Computed example of a mutant assay.
Amino acid sequence: MQEVNSASLGSALNAVWSGLLWTLQNLAEAFLNIGYAVANPSMWLDWSDKQAVMRFVYYGGSVELFFAFAAIVLLISIIGFIHRPFMWGCVRGLETFANTTGRFFAWAGLLMVLQQIIIVFMQRIFTRPDIVFGFGVPLQFDISWYAEELKLYNALVVALCVTYTFVQGGHVRVDLIYSAVSFRTKKVIDMCGSVLFMIPVATLVWMYGWYFMWRHLIVPKPSASDTLERLLLKSRAMRWNVETIGFSPNGFTAYFLFKILLVAFAGMVFLQAIAFFYRSYLEFVEGEGSENKYLDKDTLGEGEEAYEGVH
């Protein structure tokens, strides 16, 4: 029995050691891969070359890309741990990106409302089967096309405003334990949450969303299980086949945009997870006086403070 337990323990330790070596090896190779990619941009950015497109598809959802990002984040983190103002600068930059993107695409909600009003007027009052916009060469589609396009505005708000809402503290949260613990404990929970939940989930969504997107843009359809060599072979028959089929007759024909938004959503959540980890660490180190430091929160104006943060 003791021999079996010893063998199991030895196998577990060996597996951990092998995993650690694999991780360190990939991190070391990441810097070489980054240098090679920067030095040879035509290998993956020259989309007049079908093989370059397939390389872009493969590396966009590859282990190499993940470790390239991990190596960059690790390097930035080390610099930030040594020089905290640099880390604060990263936090401000990433949060500004989230806020700016969110504030811009939040206007899609207004467009959605206005377009819905136009649809109702055209259907019920003018009894028109279509809507025409523009001069010279007008944009003319059936009303059902514009009705289904409303989903796109909703997707823009959800996918591109999610990190903005996170920065603003607008997401619903149930603080049964979090609200009762000390300030520094909260920051530890935040750091663990960003590393153990936000980053892994964003990575999984990116990995699945990346190939899901490209399967609706090109043929032969790429697969997550395809090796680089197999994709390069497929490049001989590759052609663009952007999805333009609606779910209903005369319906919205640009559903490929939803796949692109899914990938954008995952990328923005990944970046915000890094910013949240950095902010939580800095507030943990510097204490309560640094809480919400440099945080660019929306305000309703002077005298409306009582209504802010009410959802």
Results as ranks from 00 to 15, higher is better:
V195D: 01
V201N: 01
H216Y: 15
L217K: 12
P200K: 00
P200C: 02
M191D: 03
M213N: 06
T203K: 00
A202L: 11
C192N: 08
V201F: 10
I199E: 01
Y208A: 12
Y211I: 14
R215E: 14
K221V: 14
G193S: 09
D190H: 11
I199S: 03
Y208G: 07
P200E: 01
S194M: 11
V205Y: 03
M198G: 06
Y211L: 08
M207K: 15
V205R: 07
P200S: 01
D190E: 12
F197K: 03
V219R: 08
K221H: 07
W210A: 09
P200Y: 00
Y208D: 10
M198F: 13
V195L: 12
M191K: 11
H216C: 08
L204P: 02
R215C: 04
V205L: 11
L204F: 12
C192I: 15
R215S: 13
D190G: 05
V219N: 10
F212R: 13
W214I: 08
M191A: 13
F212M: 08
G193M: 09
V195K: 02
P220W: 01
C192Q: 11
G209P: 11
I218F: 05
L196P: 09
M207H: 14
H216A: 08
P220V: 03
V205N: 06
F197E: 00
F212H: 13
V195Y: 03
V195Q: 02
L204E: 09
F212L: 13
A202T: 05
L204T: 11
W206N: 12
W210T: 06
V219P: 06
M213S: 07
H216V: 07
G193I: 11
S194Q: 10
V219G: 09
W210G: 09
G209R: 11
V201A: 05
D190Q: 14
L196H: 02
W206K: 12
G193A: 11
W210F: 08
V205P: 05
V219D: 13
F212E: 09
G209I: 06
P220I: 03
W214C: 04
L217D: 09
K221N: 08
T203S: 00
M207D: 02
P200W: 01
D190S: 14
F197G: 04
M213P: 03
W210L: 07
V219F: 06
P200L: 00
G209M: 09
H216I: 06
